[in-house]
């Protein structure tokens, strides 16, 4: 009782405070200012710029400029790359997570896998490209070993690291671990009793996964998929270092636009950037809608 009465009279409110008014919000001003200056305003600048002429008039010409075949093609490749690497990351990551966490493997392997995933999910970017060049490039160890030991010529089989397939393969290197990191806690959240209840009611193995585990995991899976999609869609460094600019994906085109600085139409850059925000935004919107449906049974 003494504690309660004490806290009630403790100097929580500043003496300046008027009834019903509090200065508490001042505490978030630094954060708000930072977010405004370095996150929100730059984004708004892009969005507005996409709909303005260099003279400041409102226009849809920039957006119309996106309809050029090379940009549309790059956008399609980007979306495909992001979808496939996100899907692959989700499925393979889930498989690995199940194997490591629920598969009856020694728990040491689980810890090691999670630690490694922490590293590998941050191993995106330039070094990753180098690693894949050293593995599957023209002089890569796998390429050479396959050629010398098994007589398999990868490039004759149509495989080229500097390609869509190669890039997808490289992206999976950070997508799968990211999936593992996010889904592991969700898998831990599956109660043993659910499985046992299902089994005693006749559902075991696949049936249990189909009827209970996957539906329970579904919101997490969706969320991770959206995150992986955005992750791949915005990635530049790996693709740049791996393919130079020979594979045209949207971020590389934007990169070239910004770098080039000599654009026929500088506002096309705005339009491309806006398009990128729009696509990741839509992806997240879809995710939010799907999630709210999938989560009816959650609080």
């Amino acid at each position: 009782m003494t504690i309660a009465s004490h806290t009630d009279t403790s100097p929580r409110r500043s003496p300046l405070a008027l009834p019903g008014w509090s200065w508490n919000w001042l505490g978030v001003v630094p954060f708000a200012l930072f977010a405004l200056l370095f996150l929100i305003l730059p984004t708004i600048q892009i969005v507005f710029g996409a709909f303005r002429t260099p003279e400041g008039d409102i226009t849809l010409r920039n957006i119309a400029g996106l309809m050029e075949p090379n940009i549309l093609h790059a956008a399609w490749v980007s979306i495909k790359l992001s979808l496939i690497s996100a899907l692959g990351g989700c499925i393979i990551g889930l498989g690995l997570a199940i194997a490591v966490i629920r598969g009856g493997l020694p728990s040491v392997l689980r810890d090691a896998t999670m630690t490694f995933s922490g590293v590998a999910s941050n191993f995106a970017g330039v070094p990753l490209a180098f690693a894949f060049i050293a593995t599957l490039g023209r002089l890569g160890i796998v390429t050479l070993l396959l050629r010398d030991l098994l007589g398999i010529n990868l490039s004759a089989l149509g495989f080229n690291l500097i390609s869509f397939t190669g890039l997808t393969l490289a992206y999976l290197y950070f997508q799968i671990p990211l999936m593992l990191l996010i889904i592991a806690p969700a898998l831990d959240g599956l109660k043993r009793e659910w499985r046992e209840a299902a089994e005693s009611l006749g559902a075991e193995g696949i049936e249990y996964w189909r009827r209970v585990a996957l539906p329970v995991l579904w919101p997490s899976l969706l969320g991770t998929f959206a995150l992986l999609f955005a992750n791949a869609f915005g990635a530049v460094a790996t693709a740049m270092a791996l393919t130079g600019s020979s594979l045209s994906i949207i971020p590389i085109i934007l990169f070239a636009q910004i770098r080039g600085d000599v654009l026929q139409d500088p506002h096309l850059g705005y339009a491309i950037a806006f398009g990128m925000i729009a696509i990741t935004g839509i992806a997240n919107l879809i995710y939010i809608i799907l999630r709210s449906r999938a989560e009816r049974w959650l609080k």
Partner: peptide, 21 residues
């Protein structure tokens, strides 16, 4: 929500905004 935005807005877009702003 704000802290999660950088996961949705690609870094290249953010830096483009910086350059212009």
């Amino acid at each position: 929500f704000i802290t999660l935005l950088p996961l949705v807005i690609p870094p290249i877009v953010i830096v483009f905004g910086y350059i212009r702003l």
